[in-house]
Nucleic acid binder design. Structure first.
Length: 653
DNA sequence: TAGGGGTCTATAT
DNA sequence: TAGACCCCTA
């Protein structure tokens, strides 16, 4: 869930970063983010119960990338669910179960594309899958650690202890655990967005001397987090306003002033909300982590350091008294949910000469080494501009010099940033992106600013006039963006809007199926180059239309031309029969007997544009009915909260 | 008009 | 999980 809108909120505390500038450092990685993305690419295989290592390879690509920049990765995995999240997890399991049922139903109706979409939602990342990755990492001498509870707290501790200088994650919650340097949105080109805790006051809009981290954390909790829903009508902006106004450090007193300070007289802050707020704050501060140097569990911050009453820590996990069990959990040898032993690897035992496969091994010192100390996390190396300079990584078992040479050749052959910019710049601007880029406080590191897909954080570069300021080729070609039938209002729109509508209608007529967001096929490049040289919008439409015909004519793979496969009703019944989806102890896969129900790839009949939801507007039927909004919403909120294991919260009168 | 909140989509290959 | 988009409220 995270903190809604936190990453954009932290824009003034953020800066674009590239791994080449982090050489010699250690990075803790929220590995479930990678696993989730990796699983997306092979969800159908997993759902069919087929063997696949696509998700492993996906993660290893990132590991390899970090190593190639001489960065020591520490892969961190989630452990047990916190009691506060048990019901959330149950909800997720139910949701997966629902997706499984829907997939079965859709297959029965022959709507296989939609069924695929549902299948992607019903596959979960299990500890067994994580363990496969851990084993691969062991082969490569890459450190892994399973947190007793949330990986976020574990990574924040690694950062606090000086073991990891940076943290890589997609989850904005991590900022609340006190991590100092967090890299969001790391991509396979090595680019990411660095958020630095020391700059958070800039995002909050207050002077440094009036800022402290507690204010920020409290603001985030107030706006709604994993451990506490927000009060109705309170988001980040209002929470920030309140935290800047109040001088009261005792939140039990301060929170009661929310209605006055925010001029929301109808808001009621009761004692239950205040108690739950205190518990949420304690959860972020005092969650249990595993200290690999001392080989014991401890709290992220000691209770006495923050003068926290232990009674508030009921959601911050509990201490495992069996130290051997705690160690084996941290090593990944135990299933965190069932505590069943799955492996017996131990860092103090000499590594087995297991693998016949040729893998590159890192020679960074392991955090599990008995003589490891935080100073070992910084590896002194010379700077290099070559992104794939393997020499510094000091792998063994490989012809390194030859590889360095090959990689340098490859690096030199890459297009320059300016070339990439030319290839991918379409001049698209969405309203939100504009506002974000306008208040970016840090200058770009490169003299050539790009907006390429490879560098999504690059600012708009001064460049030659673009042909189509109003929409990218992507938007042009996307059949999802078809507008409703043109009416009288449509005719009154500005010319550019009408032209766009016309473009969309052209493509609707052509029934183009666009598969790649990046239009990587050859005909697409032709479209781009044609459009780039055209100055007349009308002319561009004609050319695009021609190009679409080319796209349509492109040879289709045998898989694409497979006839629609009728679903096997018997299997569908089995599929939807509600077998338990216990992600805690089993892989969330469908029985292999259901394989026949999943055709490899089929073309589905297209819905007419009018049958689709255009944009994201809510269907008429689902519009909120104003008079009942507050009561309905607060009821819903209370339900949500009770599912979190907390009591009902204050509602609007 | 700013901001909260609901809904939908992409994520990989 | 984040972001985009849209609708609604104060």
């Amino acid at each position: 869930m995270g903190i809604t809108g936190l990453i954009p909120f932290l824009e003034k505390a953020s800066v674009k970063v590239h791994l080449k500038n982090l050489r010699g450092s250690t990075v803790a990685v929220d590995t479930y983010c990678w696993l989730h993305k990796g699983v997306f690419g092979c969800a159908e295989k997993l759902a069919r119960g087929e063997e696949t290592d696509i998700y492993i390879q996906y993660c290893l690509k990132y590991v390899q990338m970090l190593l190639s920049y001489d960065i020591k990765p520490i892969l961190v995995f989630d452990g047990q669910h916190l009691p506060a999240k048990a019901l959330t997890e149950q909800r997720r399991r139910e949701s997966r179960q629902q997706s499984k049922k829907r997939a079965a139903e859709l297959l029965r109706l022959g709507r296989t594309e939609e069924a695929r979409s549902q299948l992607r939602r019903c596959v979960d990342v299990t500890h067994e899958m994580a363990l496969r990755l851990i084993k691969e990492c062991r082969d490569r001498h890459v450190d892994c650690i399973v947190a007793p509870y949330e990986a976020d707290a574990q990574m924040a501790w690694l950062n606090k202890a000086g073991i990891a200088q940076y943290i890589v994650t997609e989850d904005s919650d991590l900022t609340l655990f006190g991590a100092q340097k967090i890299i969001f949105k790391l991509d396979l080109t090595g680019a990411g967005l660095l958020v630095e805790a020391v700059k958070i006051h800039l995002a909050m809009g207050c002077r440094e001397e009036r800022y402290n981290f507690d204010k920020f954390r409290r603001m985030c909790i107030m706006s709604g987090c994993d451990y506490l829903d927000s009060l109705p009508g309170i988001g980040l902006a209002k929470a920030c306003k309140f935290m800047l106004k109040t001088e009261q450090d005792d939140m039990r007193i301060a929170l009661k002033k929310i209605p006055q300070y925010l001029n929301m007289r109808q808001l009621e802050v009761d004692n239950e909300y205040i108690e739950n707020f205190m518990k949420a704050e304690a959860t972020f501060k005092h969650m249990y982590i595993y200290n690999p140097l001392e080989r014991r569990m401890e709290r992220l911050y000691a209770l006495e350091d923050h003068k926290t009453d232990e009674s508030y820590c009921s959601n911050a996990g509990s201490l495992l008294t069996d130290s051997d069990m705690a160690l084996n959990l941290a090593l990944g040898n135990l299933n965190p949910f069932t505590l069943k032993r799955l492996d017996s690897w131990h860092p103090d035992q000499s590594p087995k000469q297991t693998t016949a496969k040729q893998v590159k091994r890192s020679k960074h010192k392991s955090i599990w080494h008995t003589n490891y100390n935080a100073k070992d996390s910084l590896v002194k190396t010379k700077q290099s501009n070559c992104a794939l300079y393997f020499k510094k990584v000091d792998f063994v078992g490989q012809a390194i010099e030859a590889e360095i040479e090959a990689n340098q050749r490859q690096e030199l052959a890459k297009p320059t940033e300016a070339e990439v910019s030319n290839m991918y710049s379409f001049g698209v601007k969405r309203k939100r992106s504009q506002s974000q880029s306008s208040c970016h406080s840090t200058p770009p590191s490169s003299p050539v600013q790009t907006r390429s897909r490879h560098n999504p954080f690059a600012k708009e570069a001064p460049r030659s006039p673009v042909v189509c300021e109003n929409g990218s080729l992507l938007r042009l070609l996307s059949p999802k963006k078809q507008s409703p039938q043109q009416g009288p209002e449509e005719r009154n729109r500005p010319e550019s809007t009408r032209l766009n509508a016309l473009k969309r209608s052209i493509f609707a007529k052509e029934q183009v199926e666009v598969r790649s967001r990046f239009f990587s096929t050859q005909p697409t490049k032709e479209i781009e180059s044609k459009i780039a040289t055209s100055l007349e919008v009308k002319q561009m439409e004609n050319k695009a239309e021609t190009s679409i015909a080319e796209v349509d004519k492109r040879p289709t793979s045998p898989l694409e031309t497979k006839p629609l496969v009728e679903a096997n009703n018997k299997d569908v019944v089995e599929l939807s029969s509600g077998e338990s989806d216990d992600s805690c102890s089993q892989t969330a896969t469908l029985p292999s007997s259901q394989e026949a129900t999943l055709p490899t790839k089929v073309m589905t009949p297209k819905l007419p544009p009018s049958a689709r939801r255009v944009g994201l507007s809510r269907p008429k039927a689902s519009k909120r009915t104003i008079p009942n909004t507050k009561t309905a919403k607060s009821d819903d909120n209370q339900t949500k909260l009770s599912m979190f294991g907390f009591q009902k919260r204050p509602v609007l009168k």
